[in-house]
Design a protein around this nucleic acid. Structure first.
Lengths: 339, 339
DNA sequence: ATGAAAGCGCTAACAG
DNA sequence: CTGTTAGCGCTTTCAT
């Protein structure tokens, strides 16, 4: 790889002049500018951004940490996040923790050593993860953006109001006349599932109803967990007439279990998912779901990081996105409900 | 952020000694090692990898370029790719081109400037993309790994034999007695779809059969394209008894169209997908599909990159993974076929 | 075993 | 307008 020295030598100018035609072209005479540009062309010279950042003490690389990428929600956030940042000439180093605390800690360390300008954490995080104090301390040095619940006023949040989303879902089912409503949720040690539960309960409370706790389950939040739980639920004497799932992936399993048991959606079983990934439209019938507007989350997180770093915008800023009920064809009135 | 100087000052040693306790501990006395380690601890010192790489002229960052991440296949490759690389202390800068040639070119340029150690291209690529010559020239300086068809002996390939995969799918349907077999494929200017077509045709040729070209369609390779095409196909007088799709996503649309038209899978319509993403198991009935073993592709690509950079392994190496038919419940014998 | 000094590729005063 | 010089954070001879 050619360096600035090689260019300077070939163009018969000093390296300072080369640096100037790249960073401050107006300060160099036309004649020398041409000389330098020709040399750059000839040598296929590409300035070393790393070296530049070393001396300017800047960085345009953001570290993105996430536990899992193999779901239908995360990639949509990454998509807009990465695209917006690259529009502004930022790079993203993607790290996958696999829900492993030790690994996450190492990755945070490596990203620090790699001179990132900030951190973004995407995906479910345990309220009492051993790394949470480390992340809190990170805010002394870097902007930290959480795309999830995290209880520290020094980190920024960009996320949907998931409590409200779950509230919307439960309220919708209650208004349709359902009373035996199952809730297929994840592990409550994660903030996301805890808040979804809170929203679910709030809808019941508001209606003066009491949820059947035997229908509220903590499962592995994927299609397998959804399939197993639904298969069980359909045997219950207080069999649910509606199921709300903490993620669209879970709903896939619900659909399969329902179809295998010849339970028709929505006439015999209403289903609402959570996340609003496009593929939920591909199910039959198209899944009613709570959209978190993944692309918006990614875009807003990217813009916030840019403001926090480039414009040195001060003050912690939280961006909370309103979730919305995407009413489609997987919900209907409960049997016997007066319309 | 503390620097090596700060540590040296606090430990009252030279910066060379600090560097040694980090990189070559055996060459420093126990007493000074402790002094330095205490100072590192106290200052939360993290060595700047960037500066180190600048001087050692090394790099452990690989550039990953892909057109689209919002599908059910790509994330599985990224998952294993990123995880294996981080096990070996490599980082991955992820860039999304959005099928935009200009953007891809800029991203290649930026990654070069960011001192990556190599490039990986993941996802469909046009056989005559304007950037292909640029990528070819990249091989003069960097290892380049293609996770797709690319016609240059200087780039490495890690991918499934997709021609063989399509052949397997078509052969399976033919052996089940199907003759009216539809093929929902993508744009043939992309190598991946062209080779799938070749495999499809080979199976027919081998059986002495001629495919019905009116059943071979180039569509947008997602669930919407699959839905639209299938809705049409089901009106045909030579209505297909089986459909092979170039991707699992397309098959989602096929399922929906079939269900809406009360066409039962597999008894009235057999379906085979392509890619083998786990979610295809969640469909009802579970989708028969050609697995490309995405996690293997990611892992092998990562290991190859490590060998190419760390061990300076010479010679271009291609790793071709055998696809496999995952026979599940979406295919059955053609009506009237002798069993 | 340890420190001084040179230098990776680059920018940014400082002279001229 | 242009070149010289110092130095970003770090490693690595070269002496001692």
């Amino acid at each position: 790889m050619a360096t600035i020295k090689d260019v300077a030598k070939l163009a018969k100018v000093s390296i300072a002049t080369v640096s100037r035609v790249i960073n401050n072209p107006s300060s160099v005479s036309d004649a020398r500018t041409k000389l330098v540009k020709d040399a750059i062309e000839e040598l296929h010279y590409v300035p070393n951004i790393i070296a530049k950042e070393l001396i300017t003490k800047s960085s345009a690389t953001v570290g993105l940490l996430l536990p899992d990428i193999t779901n239908t929600f995360t990639p949509y956030i990454i998509d807009s996040f990465v695209k917006v940042l690259s529009d502004y000439h930022y790079n993203v180093v993607t790290c996958i923790t696999g829900f492993d605390d030790k690994r996450e800690q190492e990755l945070i360390h490596v990203l620090t050593a790699r001179n990132v300008c900030g951190f973004v954490f995407l995906g479910p995080r345990q309220a009492h993860s051993v790394n949470n104090p480390i992340i809190s301390r990170l805010t002394d040095t870097f902007p930290v953006i959480m795309l999830d619940y995290f209880d520290d006023p020094k980190v920024c949040h960009v996320m949907a109001d998931e409590e409200e989303g779950a509230y919307l879902a439960a309220k919708h089912l209650i208004e349709l006349g359902h009373r035996n409503i199952a809730f297929l949720n994840g592990d409550l040690s994660y903030g996301t599932y805890l808040h979804k539960q809170a929203g679910f309960l709030r809808a019941f409370e508001e209606s003066g109803l009491t949820p059947d706790s035997s229908l509220m389950k903590s499962i592995t939040p994927d299609h397998i967990g959804g399939y197993q739980a639904t298969t069980e639920l359909l045997q219950y004497r207080n069999r649910p007439t509606a199921i709300f799932t903490a993620g669209d992936q879970i709903a896939i399993g619900v659909y399969r279990a329902a179809q295998e048991n010849k339970v028709s959606i929505p006439s015999q079983l209403s289903v609402i998912g959570f996340s609003g990934s496009p593929f939920s439209l591909g199910l039959h019938p198209p899944l009613c779901t709570i959209s978190q507007f993944a692309p918006d989350i990614g875009r807003e997180a990217a813009m916030l990081m840019i403001n926090l770093t480039k414009h040195k915008e001060e003050g912690v800023k939280d961006i909370i996105i309103n979730p919305a009920l995407l009413d489609r064809f997987s919900c209907s009135y409960a049997a016997g409900h007066a319309v």
